[in-house]
């Protein structure tokens, strides 16, 4: 019964996103494409912070590793976009696993700082190898290099539906994960890791798995972004992108499957809307972070779940 309700809710959300493409005006059409790709990054982040209880402040490094692995391969070597997507995702998976082997020896505030420092080092490395990466300015990937079976990735319809497919894949993966026995252990680690150890689980392995999956989704989002929008730049590796992920997830509701896209969608349009009034996004992001921690720590869906919809995954 509850299972059916939640399947209907998530299926319905995907259906709405599918149908929106027939009504959205072109400007919002591109925005939604972008938001769906970035929400995949948010879902990846949420697996770690929302379901495993590990707060990373350096997820931009996984987004960027997928983005650069795919983007540079296409730009310099002429790899086809599909292989580049796989390459970017796998690179991020491997990178996240390597980072996890070191960083997961810490917890809490130390883990936040360690991930932030690793991510900062990556950002600086991208700037350091300026000749290859073109630093902050970034690389524009030519349209000619972004063709799949004769279709150009600049085609908005193709792009929207690819983004939707990616998002649906991430959503289903996340949903299946938290309903699985692995997800059960991850949630328990969030609640009380010490107890989980005494129930006979090698918790480090589970946390590593969560981080690897989280990195995989972040990298897949980064690779898709590079291929769909033809741009790779150091801003995506900067700490700001780690904080965006944090903000989307906190706003939508950490530990809810649909939270990341709701958070990303709201933040995107909130920044859009206020940028008509003030010059910069900073005050919106800053105020949102402060207000969320003060008054709304569970986010939108988290609060809804607490008040009404207990079955919400």
């Amino acid at each position: 019964m509850e299972r059916n309700r939640s399947l209907a809710l998530h299926g319905g959300a995907l259906l709405i996103l599918f149908l929106l493409q027939f009504v959205l005006p072109p400007y919002h059409y591109t925005n939604f494409t972008r938001i769906m790709v970035l929400a995949v990054y948010g879902i990846g982040y949420n697996i770690l912070i929302g379901y495993t209880g590990l707060l990373s402040l350096g997820h931009a490094m996984f987004l960027a590793s997928g983005m650069y692995a795919a983007g540079l391969a296409v730009h310099y070597i002429g790899v086809d976009p599909v292989s580049a997507f796989v390459l970017g995702s796998v690179a991020a998976l491997a990178f996240a696993t390597a980072v996890g082997l070191v960083a997961l020896r810490t917890t809490g505030v130390s883990f936040m700082i360690v991930t932030m420092m690793f991510s900062q080092a990556c950002y600086l490395l991208i700037l350091y190898f300026n000749e290859v990466t073109r630093g902050d300015e970034g690389i524009a990937i030519s349209e000619a290099a972004r063709q799949i079976a004769g279709f150009s990735l600049t085609n908005p319809i193709l792009r929207y539906n690819l983004a939707l497919a990616l998002f649906a894949g991430a959503l289903i993966l996340c949903y299946a994960l938290i309903r699985s026995r692995v997800g059960r252990v991850l949630i328990a680690i969030r609640e009380n890791e010490e107890r989980v150890k005494m129930l006979g689980y090698h918790t480090f392995r589970y946390k590593l798995l969560a981080l690897a999956l989280s990195g995989l989704l972040s990298g897949a989002a980064g690779a898709s972004y590079a291929l769909m929008f033809g741009y790779v730049g150091a801003t995506f590796a900067a700490i700001e992108y780690s904080i965006f992920a944090l903000l989307w997830v906190l706003l939508g509701g950490a530990g809810t499957v649909l939270g990341p896209i709701i958070g990303a969608l709201l933040m995107f349009y909130l920044v859009e809307w206020t940028s008509d009034v003030t010059e910069s996004y900073r005050i919106v992001v800053g105020a949102a972070l402060v207000l969320l921690t003060l008054f709304f720590p569970k986010g939108i869906l988290g609060t809804l779940r607490e008040k009404r919809l207990r079955w919400l995954p």
């Binding site: 059960r184 328990a188 609640e191 009380n192």
Partner: peptide, 20 residues
């Protein structure tokens, strides 16, 4: 007492049972 306070009784025991 260190049960998982936010999880249902079923989930609490399921964690142990699935390990076994």
């Amino acid at each position: 007492t260190s049960v998982f306070r936010n999880l249902s009784c079923f989930e609490n025991v399921a964690l142990a049972a699935q390990r076994a």
